[in-house]
Design a protein around this nucleic acid. Structure first.
Lengths: 152, 152
DNA sequence: CCGAAATCATTGGTACGACCAACGTTGGCG
DNA sequence: CGCCAACGTTGGTCGTACCAATGATTTCGG
């Protein structure tokens, strides 16, 4: 992300208070923290989402993973290739439906997931550092309301 | 943006309350509204930022625009090419410093900018539809505090 | 029971935002 | 004068989020 990075010229007033602008920049900060944190552990992007879904919902088809994580099917394929290569998930043909693969998380996958959970907790904390616990809850609630509205 | 688009499988619990996740999705919704709204007017992305900076700070060099908008210099070049082609800005060599171009917004540029302001207002409104005026202010304040912290 | 429609995994490609490196030109300063 | 910094520009990279098409398979309507 880019928005008004270093320490330079003032941002136009038109932008400063626009929610879309603030969200855009917040996303930038958030993304940067995430890619740094995840990169250090050798993981990135979709991996966490997929591992989380597998840990919570158990073995799933790739199509189910795509639906539950919101990741496009084609990207699921690529991410699972990487995860399988690291032995974090296992791909096995589904006996009852030969179109499907059954993906399951391995023990190593679970370990990686809890490691990522810790990383992620640290990131949330750094991201929201200037906010009190109550304010953090408030932010979450407000964003949640907004998002809920845009999913009918 | 992608996150959990249509209406399908539940999102993993690990993700649902994570601020980074919420911000990511909020960014998705925001981006979608923006590109739709701006696209309909034949503008996109960096254009608004540049026009806003020009209107507010007056004629500027491209380097200044890059600094004040946070847009990379190379992207400023491309965006200005498009804006100039539509006669929304004027590029003129700076007499006193022949390295620089002096970019200024045209009358048509100002008209486009106010049109975009309207579009943008509508978008903020749709984005935050479920929130009261007080809640919107609160969200802005919270995000502002967070962002301020990440710019020292 | 059979053919049409839907579903699945997969390949390959697109668009866009955000970057980085390199270059030739020009300015400023010691 | 000589060197370094700043400027505009070109031409890339990378990651996220998509879409379209294909072959294999299953499901379903008639």
């Amino acid at each position: 992300m880019n928005p008004a990075a270093g320490g330079e010229g003032a941002t136009p007033a038109r932008l400063r208070k626009q929610p879309t602008w603030l969200i855009n920049r917040a996303h930038g900060v958030s993304y940067k923290l995430l890619s740094e944190g995840f990169g250090a552990v050798g993981t990135h992007g979709y991996h966490y989402r997929l591992l989380a879904a597998l840990a919570e919902f158990g073995p799933s088809s790739q199509a189910d993973l795509a639906r539950s994580t919101g990741v496009d099917g084609s990207d699921v394929v690529a991410a699972l290739n990487e995860l399988a290569q690291q032995r974090l998930v296992k791909r096995a043909p589904d006996a009852t439906d030969r179109r499907r693969n059954t993906i399951s998380i391995t023990a190593a996958g679970r370990r990686r997931l809890t490691a990522l959970d810790d990383v992620l907790d640290g990131i949330q904390d750094r991201l929201l550092a200037p906010l009190s616990a109550a304010e953090r809850r408030q932010l979450v609630v407000l964003l949640d309301r907004v998002l809920h509205h845009h999913e009918s």
